[in-house]
Amino acid sequence: MAARKTTAKPNVSPEELTQYYRDMLLIRRFEEKAGQLYGMGLIGGFCHLYIGQEAVVVGLEAAAEEGDKRITSYRDHGHMLACGMDPNGVMAELTGREGGYSKGKGGSMHMFSREKHFYGGHGIVGAQVPLGAGLAFADKYKGNGRVTFTYFGDGAANQGQVYETFNMAALWELPVVFVIENNQYAMGTAMKRSTSTPDIYHRGNAFGIPGEMVDGMDVLAVKAAGEKAVKHCRAGKGPYILEIKTYRYRGHSMSDPAKYRTREEVSKMREERDPIDHVREMLVQGGHASEEDLKAIDKEIKAVVNASAEFARESPEPALDELWTDIYAEAAD
């Protein structure tokens, strides 16, 4: 991976940088809290934490405009918080409560917000890729100039439907940014054991889709790459691929002991490449924030996360009637 950059790029103001810090920290603290609640039995089933990958969604959200869409897999809490969904609603969905985004009927892997243009939250590896291209298809059909960020992992990159989608997205010049969040492990299988070539973004070449590799531990590098990709899509030039190299600190899900990698590998990444520490340094070294300022932000975030946990505990379980609702939509007319 490229050496860490230590200075803010000129197009980022101290205020923006502070905002990225705040957004990434919210995801980190939220996920830590979710891990705690899981341990307490308040969250059930599968729970895939985003810790370590925060710069990816925060950097790309910084490149998005109002009305742009996003869709991802089951490791989705970070995406929801980054696009402005309410932490209370997300946490209450994790606990399966009425106040959750899906009224408790979706869970960790299945949350949505039409208001924030977040289209899920999909549990089948790779299935969100054609869905994301379909959202882009709808935008192109309507001619509204919107772009869809379609996130998937290095594991999903081996699904056949991804390449079926690349073909059609290129053929029909769909405004979609394919974001490959390469955290280097498809569940427990290291990329070199699952993937025939080291650079996944090269696979777009076969379809005439431009792509690039991005340092996913550097929020500014992600933002810059995202802006380039979005500009390409909005200009009507079709899809763009960003392979964003990142790292998840936790296991694949809460039940994964992560025996397939060494403790040293994880701690080296945390110590040397942590995306939040990186921004923190930039803020302090650039004289944009004092230690006190940052502490205040930490405290503020902690309060938001604690409140979401409180809300998620207090929110009642869905009424039993909810079992039978939302199976079919009623005709509007």
Binding site: Y119, V129, P130, L131, A133, G134, F137, A138, D139, T165
Partner: peptide, 11 residues
């Protein structure tokens, strides 16, 4: 999948 996505997207 593209058809389903287009339906989610309002078509």
């Amino acid at each position: 999948g593209i058809g389903v996505g287009a339906a989610f997207g309002g078509l």
